[in-house]
Computed example of a mutant assay.
Amino acid sequence: MKMRRLILLLSALTLIVSIAGCGNGEEEEPFQVGVVPAQNKGDMKQAMDKLEKKLSDGINRPVEIKIHSDYQAVVEALKYKKMDMAFLGPLTFVQARNATGVNAIVTQLIDGKPYYHSYIIVPEDSELDSMEELVKNSENVRFAFGDPNSTSGSLIPSIALKERGVFQSNQKHQFQELTFTGSHDVTALSIQNKKYDAGAIDSAIYDQLAESGKIDKDRIRIIWKSEKLFQYPWAVQKEVDQQTVDQLRKTFLSIKDPEILNVFGASAFTKAENSDYETIRKAAKEAGRLEVGSTGE
């Protein structure tokens, strides 16, 4: 009789432990999201906390958003499957897609349009008033790109300058000085304060910096504007299932919170496809900015 009770007790304990184990096993790992700030990342924290909650409710799963210091850090994290989704510049997206097969699902609208431009800006009192004048006087110009992996702050303007014969590489160029500031806001302030004579910047971020009072438009002039560029995408790993993709898109498209939208300079979000970035992919390939031998696509 005692033996039977002991067996029943052990069975009950085993069942309890089993149930407890199943409960722990059902706790999902957070859906990891990486964001590369186009400006000072300190300004993004509160908005990202809100977005984290919004996405978590949308996909019914914990979401963890991490702000990364640069584009390359996010590409590496995607390569090693340390994140499920990332907010990337167009150039970084095509590089990540080339390496890992990530898919664009959403982008932002700026004043109702999913496009932006690359600008070259100069101090307001500069004698340079056009791309032609910049090229003609390149030997006396201190030029600033943004992040080396930025579409509007590096890739597109470097191609334009290369076509005009004043830029071949970071080491081979006809400028008095060439530098990378690392971000669009630093570029804008550097031009405003005449640290450099000309610089490349994202048009939407330029407008956002002016509207927020971080730069003074009256102290800066735009002397060159690129063709339309499709806005920054949110991209997911190719392993992310279609249901989650649909939920993410639905959630982004429903966002009305101005604090979340403003940090991206957005009026709203809209659907994006890989094909939207084909022009950037071709430009990156021609400029030698895609890894050779990748199996991502």
Rank of each mutant, 00 (worst) to 15 (best):
E273I: 05
E163D: 05
D43C: 09
M85Y: 01
S267G: 14
H117P: 05
Q247A: 14
A268Y: 02
V135C: 04
V141I: 15
K81G: 13
L209A: 09
Y80F: 13
S275R: 08
D207I: 07
I205P: 10
N103D: 13
A73F: 00
D147L: 09
E132I: 08
G89W: 00
V63R: 01
P123T: 01
S267P: 08
K195D: 10
T270F: 03
M131Y: 08
A204E: 15
P62S: 08
E64P: 02
Q176V: 08
E177A: 09
E278H: 15
D218H: 10
E76V: 08
S69Y: 10
T92H: 05
D125N: 12
K162Q: 15
G112Y: 01
T100E: 00
S203W: 00
K79W: 09
G146W: 02
S56H: 07
T100W: 00
K54N: 14
R289H: 06
S118T: 00
A204R: 14
S226M: 09
D207V: 11
L91N: 01
R281W: 09
P30K: 10
K162T: 12
D70E: 15
N137D: 13
W234F: 14
K195A: 13
M3C: 11
N103C: 09
F230K: 10
G288V: 04
D147R: 06
K225M: 09
L134F: 01
T181Q: 13
I215M: 03
L229Q: 03
K225D: 05
T244E: 05
H117E: 08
G34P: 02
Q192D: 04
L8T: 12
K2P: 00
I156C: 06
E29Y: 06
K53S: 15
A96M: 03
Y206W: 07
G213I: 11
K194S: 03
G265C: 03
